[in-house]
């Protein structure tokens, strides 16, 4: 017979070890709240409309400073993404030029297979344009940021498959600006020239001015759709969701495959359990 105790002990030891490794000292600053995302949890999928809105913000606002070198235009019409049509994407790509030595002018319009253009030719140019700060590439940025939960709450993350720390952080960052240094700032905090106060940025002084504000962007409302609020909060959510998709564009198909694999494993395990039991029934053990 299977010793339930043994299994529980094995699981505890494993998670005890793996979990203990996951503690990272919390940065001073406000705690980042978990948001509810359409893509969270094992059943989560991206909300196509949200990704389209997020893309609009990325394109109209963020992409003037931030690149996305790993994103190809074709990704925008691939399944599991924002779901633009192939024609839309091709037309969009053609709006951007790319250097091509074989072209007559040394440049040609981009095609769907080309990558998203970088706004600055070099890192130095980017820094010069941004008061010395470097706007990071967006391709995997949502995976490169995270949140920390106090003990013992992070243990739950392994069971809920919490992977949205990056989106939570980005949302918090975009909504965490203050026009003036607030009373909650660390003692003796002085904001350097050209920096902005943010509750969630490590060290609070960020080189990016608040990129979004209420009413900044107008969303097109499709027929029969409810209007989406044009607020900083909504924009931040949408662009954070889009960034999560950029970092993990195949999440939906991966989870779908996961369900098939899990189903198979459970059935196979059940079968093996029965085989093993029958076999051992004859042996006193």
């Amino acid at each position: 017979m299977i010793r339930v105790k043994s299994i529980i002990a094995a699981v505890l030891v494993t998670f005890g070890l793996a979990g203990a490794g996951a503690v990272v000292a919390a940065e001073a600053g406000k705690e980042i709240q978990k948001q509810s995302w359409s893509f969270s949890g094992p059943f989560g999928t991206y909300d196509q409309n949200q990704l389209q809105r997020g893309f609009q913000i990325f394109r109209e606002v963020c992409s003037s400073c931030h690149g996305a070198r790993l994103i190809a235009f074709r990704n925008l019409y691939e399944p599991g993404g924002p779901g633009f049509s192939e024609e839309q994407v091709k037309a969009l790509a053609a709006e951007y030029q790319i250097a091509d030595a074989t072209a007559e002018t040394g440049q040609r319009p981009r095609v769907a297979a080309d990558r998203w253009p970088n706004p600055f030719p070099t890192e130095q140019d980017a820094r010069d344009a941004n008061g010395g700060a470097y706007p990071p590439d967006f391709s995997v940025l949502a995976k490169a940021r995270g949140t920390t939960q106090p003990f013992p709450w992070w243990i739950l993350n392994y069971f809920t498959a919490y992977q949205e720390g990056g989106a939570d952080y980005i949302y918090a960052l975009l909504t965490g600006y203050h026009e003036e240094v607030p009373a909650s700032a660390p003692e003796g905090f002085e904001l350097a020239e050209g920096k902005y106060y943010n509750d969630y940025f490590p060290g609070h002084a960020i080189g990016m001015g608040p990129p979004l504000a209420d009413g900044l962007i107008t969303y097109e409302v499709g027929e029969g759709e409810a209007a989406v609020p044009l607020t900083l909060d909504q924009y931040s959510r949408d662009v954070a969701a889009f960034m999560q998709w950029m970092a993990d564009p195949h999440m939906v198909s991966r989870k779908e495959a996961g369900f098939r694999v899990m189903l198979f494993l459970f059935l196979f395990a059940g079968l093996m359990w029965a085989v093993k039991r029958r076999l051992w029934a004859k042996v006193e053990h």
């Binding site: 498959a161 369900f259 899990m262």
Partner: peptide
Amino acid sequence: IVFFIPFAWFVFFAPDILGHPDNYI
């Protein structure tokens, strides 16, 4: 097969949870 169940759980539903976000920089 039983061991593969948590293994698959991480692979398909939380492939990055055991790593560190900084390694995406």
